[in-house]
Design a binder for these strands. Structure first.
Lengths: 115, 115
DNA sequence: CTGTATCCCCCTTGATACTG
DNA sequence: CAGTATCAAGGGGGATACAG
């Protein structure tokens, strides 16, 4: 299969894997999606807690991109102090198979436990 | 699920997604694995053709890491001119569900075709 | 053909301070 | 609490040359 490789005008590869990586590639996005998908709606600071090592800037940046791509939903409550919640969108839920496959692989390959 | 977040001594997240990203994250590895998995064994230069935009350095570097992680197998023929073939390993095949999930998602979200 | 080594630029990321 | 702005630093990645 896949004998025909799709290439655009600039010579860039256009395979579906590539497309997916462009949307959710990088160090953080899939982990963020994992949490909002399986742990449910999270506040901004809760996400910080869940993602040790992430910086302020990275988190807000990645969240903004995920929101712009329609993968997460941002809900702001105009209270004092402010409260903002992030949840997975319908579209974001379509990534569940990807998340589950990666979770399963990481688990089976010994990613967790006393290593 | 997953209320217990695994963290190591250095405060780094230790979830299975994270583990997987460490092994096959980045711009190229999953695409390389896609090709050797579904298009079969490939020579070095064939891979270059299949991955428009990749540089010499990146390809050999990524291949080396994939080989060291046991995900691809490198076979060298001592001929003249040299010939080296890369194929997916048994362990590499365990990533098939991940590749398929990402391929499906990329396809459904309109990653291919006239966009 | 299949790499490795070197140099170097730039882009991502981090740290910090500031805002609503 | 939930961000944004700014600046600086580091390293990932590119171009090129060289090697087996």
């Amino acid at each position: 299969m896949t004998e025909e490789i799709q290439v655009d005008d600039h010579g860039k590869l256009k395979c579906s894997i590539d497309y997916t990586l462009n949307k959710v590639g990088g160090k953080w996005k899939l982990v963020i999606l994992w949490h909002v998908t399986f742990d449910g709606t999270q506040r901004y600071n809760e996400l910080r807690r869940l993602l040790p090592g992430i910086t302020h800037k990275m988190l807000s940046q990645q969240l903004k991109e995920l929101e712009q791509d329609g993968l997460v939903v941002r809900t702001q409550y105009n209270e004092m102090p402010p409260r903002v919640e992030y949840s997975v969108s319908e579209k974001g839920l379509t990534l569940k198979p990807v998340l589950e496959a990666m979770h399963l692989w990481g688990t089976e390959q010994g990613g967790l436990a006393g290593e």
